[in-house]
Design a protein around this nucleic acid. Structure first.
Length: 607
DNA sequence: GCCGTTTTCGGCCCGACTGTTTTCAGTCG
């Protein structure tokens, strides 16, 4: 990453952060390993919190938060790139001081400044920042007045009605905290986007049906198609006379009204999700939709660009002095700051603003680009429909081919196909292919990766197939080095076409394996072996950041439904959106190829 | 703590809502 100080436009032009990988399962670093990016980012986040709790300069705190974000979004481990001579000072928002701290983190896994901060502020005080209405100032006030320094101590103070005695606090605040401890404490904050989807659409429909409401859109991370969402943001355009507060209280899914102003309302849904509703006039709808789609980092970056051009962006429009020059549509907001339209799913401040400014935004893959699906199960193993029905379902989903990849037999696995059963399936596929013109069924298998990285079926069996999809289904807890070696050994096998759901994560249930992906991606690219973006709502694996890094290594991505039933081809659009979040173009996707071209690409994976 | 085509010092995104106070700080998104 070259250091570029010269400016060609007011778009920031320091080295552009790309994608990142991080310690996926939250395990502490092994003693022999230096800090990975996630450790450095977490360190900076903690420093920001502790500085805030110390009452430090807010802009200094922001610098640490920004540094955490930048480090988290890097395509490569900083420790590695620093070893090769990379200067962290060239990163946006990283100056001499933070660069020194990054070097210290990378080399030793520690940072003296952080250790000192921990000595001056109780680190557990950070827990209080997770509470509603408690920020650094009030957490500090609670600590100074009541010597409360963690959640259990505060809960006791709430129950003893001691909080209301602290200056700046009152009975209402104490009651809010009591309610939180009684109902919310320990609950998982983020939920899968797919789980939030029905709640979002129902609320949207409820609001849209109100007389006087002309438009309702769901914004926020939901609109950006993040795999999980923390809350729902809705932008509403309506008649000034309508009583939204009443309408929300009457909504059957409302558990509690959290806030209700004239333009901003918040409710807690019975599902536990919070929904924030913003009301704007019609002419501001585009500006508001843009503003509340975010992300925060993206918004701040674009507002800074606006500022450098003498403009101001808020949820009501783009302003030059007091004159409103844009805001009825999102496109007009972008145009006002001389940027092309950036799709919501890219708005994370991961280089999209620089790319838009330079005219180099990629043309992202679209649902219509997919021609086939390379990971499909049938009733022969754990699917719910016979092969013939799955083929019909794939055709209805406008696909021209699919690969049957039932599970191969493996010690302990139930209903896996052995060599004989696989033979029978191959015959069935040949017959169907002969009868089905215009649709191709590829013969495949999903074979287990064993603990040592070898495959659960012999080459002699695998060679009879068109493709072999290898997948990790166990031994998720090996350490980073073992897991990395394991995947590298998979790529040494003679017959491996696609590595399926590579991290093995299950959203909200199981973290992905801890693996150093850079060498894995390099070897997959050289071999070649393709990587899957599994579109199952529970998996969405690879994630947006890793898929971007994989594609940047020249690896073709298979966007696959992992269908187990006739309706599961409906998962593919989720995979498409995740791929778009990873900046993936149609050319970077394996299954946008016509069947014949694909055949050639699959042949190359058998060594 | 970072940054600069208005700046190497003096700025740093912006507005709404709540609760506690009595005119606004703190929090939130």
């Amino acid at each position: 990453m070259p250091k570029r100080r010269t400016r060609t436009s007011s778009v920031r032009s320091k080295a552009v952060p790309g994608t990142s990988r991080s310690r996926r399962n939250g395990a502490p670093a092994s003693p022999d390993l230096h800090a990975v990016n996630e450790d450095i980012a977490s360190g900076f986040d903690e420093m920001a919190d502790l500085l805030a709790l110390s009452g430090e300069n807010p802009f200094r705190i922001r610098a640490y938060r920004r540094a955490a974000q930048v480090v988290r979004a890097l395509p490569e481990e900083l420790a590695d790139s620093i070893a090769r001579g990379f200067d962290p000072d060239s990163l946006p928002g990283i100056g001499p001081d933070l660069a020194t701290k990054i070097r210290e983190f990378a080399a030793t896994g520690h940072c003296r400044a952080l250790d000192e901060l921990r000595g001056s502020v109780p680190a557990s005080l950070r827990e209080l920042l997770s509470l509603p209405g408690i920020g650094p100032q009030r957490a500090r006030a609670l600590f100074q007045a009541l010597k409360v320094h963690d959640l259990p101590a505060l809960q006791k103070a709430v129950e003893a009605h001691r909080v209301r005695q602290v200056p700046g606090f009152g009975a209402r605040t104490e009651e809010t905290l009591r309610l939180h401890f009684a109902t919310q404490a320990g609950q998982e904050k983020r939920v899968r986007r797919t789980a939030a989807s029905a709640h979002a659409r129902n609320l949207q429909a409820h609001l849209a049906a109100l007389p006087g409401v002309s438009r309702v859109e769901v914004a926020g991370s939901f609109r950006r198609f993040r795999d999980t969402v923390g809350d729902l943001d809705l932008v509403v355009c309506c008649d000034a006379r309508i009583d939204l507060r009443k309408a929300l209280l009457e909504y059957p899914e409302t558990a509690r009204l959290l806030a209700a102003g004239s333009t901003r309302l918040s409710i807690l849904l019975r599902s536990g999700l919070q929904a924030d509703i913003r009301v704007v006039p019609r002419r501001s709808f585009g500006a508001a939709l843009y503003y509340f789609t975010g992300s925060k980092a993206h918004n701040i970056h674009v507002r800074r660009i606006a500022m450098s051009r003498g403009l101001k962006i808020n949820e009501y429009g783009v302003f030059k002095g007091t004159a409103r020059i844009a805001g009825d549509t999102e496109e007009s907001v972008f145009a006002a700051v001389e940027l092309p339209y950036i799709p919501p799913e890219l708005r994370e401040d991961r280089g999209e603003i620089e790319a838009a400014g330079a005219g180099t935004l990629p043309r992202l893959v679209e649902a219509g680009d997919l021609r086939g699906d390379l990971h499909v199960h049938t009733v022969a193993t754990d699917g719910t429909a016979p092969l013939r029905d799955m083929v019909e379902a794939a055709r209805r989903a406008n696909l021209a081919y699919m690969a049957v990849t039932d599970h191969g037999k493996h010690i302990g696995a139930v209903h896996g196909l052995d060599a004989t059963a696989l033979d029978r399936q191959i015959d069935e596929i040949d017959a169907l292919n002969a009868a089905n013109r215009g649709f191709t069924i590829f013969k495949g298998v999903e074979v287990d990766v064993l603990e040592d990285g070898s495959l659960a079926l012999p080459d002699a069996v695998l060679r009879r197939l068109d493709l072999v999809v290898a997948a990790v289904h166990g031994h998720f807890n090996l350490d980073r080095r073992q897991q990395t070696d394991r995947l590298l050994r998979v790529l040494d096998q003679r017959c491996v076409s696609i590595l399926a759901h590579p991290t093995g994560r299950l959203l909200g249930e199981r973290p992905g394996i801890d693996c150093d992906w850079s060498p894995v991606f390099r070897r997959a690219s050289a071999r070649p072996c393709y990587l899957e973006l599994n579109a199952q709502p529970l998996r969405l694996d690879l994630d947006d950041i890793l898929v971007r890094e994989a594609a940047a290594n020249g690896i073709l991505i298979s966007i696959a439904s992992d269908a187990h039933g006739i309706n599961d081809f409906g998962h593919l659009p989720l995979g498409i959106m995740q791929a778009r979040r990873g900046w993936i173009t149609a050319a970077q996707v394996l299954n946008t190829r016509p069947a014949r071209e694909l055949q050639g690409l699959l042949k190359r994976t058998f060594l």
